[in-house]
Amino acid sequence: MKKETGSVFRELGYFASLGMSVALSIFLGLFLGLWLDKKFDTDPVLMFIGLALGIAAGFSNIVRAGKKGRKF
């Protein structure tokens, strides 16, 4: 019983924080790209690369959560 409650809370915490971490990953990548653009004076290129990396990071979080969810 004790083990059960622990795992329920664990999944709850993990999946509840998923949405926020996806959004923040995308914004983090975007702003990292924008900042690097300003630094190296390569206007739109690094912004798009950063955005793509951010989206990839966000989605890798979802994929990892899905894999974990199948195991439970």
Binding site: S25, L28, L53, G54, A56, A57, S60, N61
Partner: peptide
């Protein structure tokens, strides 16, 4: 970079929440 962004987002999500 993907992993670094993902792990920095953890810090930010804890912070902002």
């Amino acid at each position: 970079p993907i992993e670094i962004i993902g792990h920095t987002a953890r810090v930010l999500s804890l912070t902002f929440r």
